[in-house]
């Protein structure tokens, strides 16, 4: 594989807090346009790994490049080329839908016409035409999540990081949410998503399963099911996760 076809490359990426190793020498590649699932129990190190890749946290050792930029030297450049949707809801509740779009679009460098076009397109795609002047706090949770995702990719990043984006969302909205993820991937945006819903793992092109800070399995869902001699991802995950020593 040519390096230019890779979105994320990590080699022995490690994060230690004192004597505790949150992420233990993980190595993997994510291809451009791929939907890459990052699975693991609570405390397995998913969020820590993601925080290192998004430049929020400095790795203790190892190497990583994101969108071609080094996480040590070029964190600010990475930030221009990625989108991020955190576990916590990250839109401003006391701003209107339109104001949130203008703010986040604005800080990613979208100006006047480009912002207007992106904003109109986003509102149209979500069917929020009637709600542009609604305060975000007054939207139903499902809509908020979809809006947060759309805003996180408003600047057409090359990669978007989604940290448990569907937590607390009903199954119908979850389905719609994944349709939006597919659409984004079709437009060439690489998706890096953490989840602990195993049905969602089936939607990914490839998944990595983390246990106690290490990647214990990596591959297409169909491959993994064959390797672990089972027909559900749930069972694959269960076989790996029960070896875990830490949890919450």
């Amino acid at each position: 594989m040519k390096p230019s076809e890779q979105s994320i490359v990590t080699k022995n990426l490690t994060k230690k807090y004192g004597t505790f190793t949150a992420v233990d020498a993980i190595s993997f590649d994510v291809r451009k346009g791929e939907i890459f699932g990052f699975l693991g129990a609570n405390g397995a190190g998913k969020t820590t790994a993601m925080r290192m890749l998004t430049g929020l946290s400095k790795p203790s050792s190892g190497e990583a490049t994101v969108a071609g930029f080094d996480v040590y030297r070029d964190a600010e450049n990475i930030k221009k080329h990625i989108g991020y949707m955190s576990q916590k809801f990250s839109l401003y509740q006391d701003l209107k839908v339109k104001e949130n779009i203008a703010f986040y679009g604005g800080i990613y460098g979208l100006r006047r016409e480009a912002l207007q076009a992106a904003s109109d397109q986003l509102i149209h795609r979500l069917g929020l035409q009637g709600e542009v002047k609604t305060m975000v706090k007054d939207l139903p949770l499902g809509w908020k999540q979809k809006l947060a995702f759309s805003i996180s990719i408003i600047h057409q990043p090359s990669i978007v990081f989604l940290d448990e984006p569907t937590g607390g969302v009903d199954p119908v909205t979850r389905r719609q949410f994944w349709n939006m993820i597919y659409e984004a991937a079709d437009r060439g945006i690489t998706i890096f998503v953490t989840t602990h819903y195993m049905d969602e793992a089936e939607y990914c092109n490839r998944v990595a399963i983390m246990v106690d800070g290490k990647i214990e399995a990596l591959g297409q869902p169909s491959e993994l099911k064959v390797r672990f001699e089972t027909d559900t991802m749930d069972d694959v995950f269960y076989q790996l996760a029960r070896k875990a020593k830490r949890g919450d």
Partner: peptide
């Protein structure tokens, strides 16, 4: 507290 600061920290601001 509401987590928006993290969203700003991953942005180019």
């Amino acid at each position: 507290e509401i987590g928006t600061i993290e969203q700003l920290n991953v942005s180019p601001i």
